[in-house]
Nucleic acid binder design. Structure first.
Lengths: 144, 144
DNA sequence: CTCAATCCCAAGTGATCTTGTCGGGATTGA
DNA sequence: TCAATCCCGACAAGATCACTTGGGATTGAG
């Protein structure tokens, strides 16, 4: 799913393109794209030559956002949701394990926060003038 | 599930007791208990007054072990399993997201490693003579 | 010895989640 | 107008999770 992100970084792309490149069903990608759009991570242009585009530079998109958008609030367990309405679990009072989950959750959040989309874009050799696969239009892709 | 662990720390307990205390179905607890036993985390004594007991002191049992035993190798995604037979995902070659999952996995493992069963046992007031809530048994919980 | 309490174990069930599929719109550039 | 594209809701197969069923085997107490 997040494979989507990889493909961005270049211009706007239609779902059909992406579907072909990732060989995933187009209809499924649509679903994900809507969610990402609602989350403000991608922008869409409709009509004949429409498609999706990143809303921000890849370096500015933390994977935590993407994951939260796609999979909901990242809680390893109910009773450790991020918006602390944490009386979801009836056992809450006598359940000390909560502490564990919260810690795990924070660890995950931290790891996710530390990775941006840019980190996951495979380096398509920056164009000196060879132009092999993909131009890399604007200043993305600086770090590993 | 892991609630089991909480109840140990005292003497050996029969499943019926634990089931009553946690109000969970006894039969289900059995399943979990077997797994924990196979993993060497608890020992069992059969027969009339049998029951389960921790195999080690609570401070010596990392939650990572418990979780691994109960839920299998902790991989946030297939393609990031712990035993690095990591060509489970057909897309592996062109999939850079793997890096992300590995990082998340390590973060989780770290968090789990840093918490022992003792940290999750609600303090049944250790007999010194004052202490109400949290005696912190021995040098656990030093870091955040 | 007998019996009940307990652990041992495999297989099955039902709800929920994940991963998609389908079908039909709405919007836009050519 | 027409085709390409996004938009959206509802459905379905498969896996997974939490739990149940139905039997054993082992042991201490009477």
């Amino acid at each position: 799913m997040v494979q989507l992100g990889r493909h961005f970084g270049g211009g706007p792309a239609s779902l059909s393109e992406i579907a072909a490149a990732e060989d995933m069903p187009r209809a499924y990608l649509e679903q994900l794209a809507f969610v990402l759009r609602d989350a403000g991570l991608v922008t869409s242009t409709r009509g004949a030559h429409g498609g999706y585009e990143l809303a921000r530079a890849p370096e500015a998109i933390h994977m935590s956002e993407v994951l939260r958008a796609l999979e909901g609030p990242l809680a390893p367990m109910i009773c450790a949701t991020e918006d602390d309405a944490h009386d979801a679990c009836a056992r809450t009072s006598n359940c000390t394990v909560n502490l564990l989950w919260v810690r795990v959750r924070d660890a995950v959040a931290g790891a996710l926060e530390g990775v941006t989309l840019a980190d996951l874009v495979p380096q398509r050799v920056v164009p000196v003038h060879g132009r092999t696969t993909e131009p890399t239009p604007q200043g993305a892709l600086t770090n590993s």
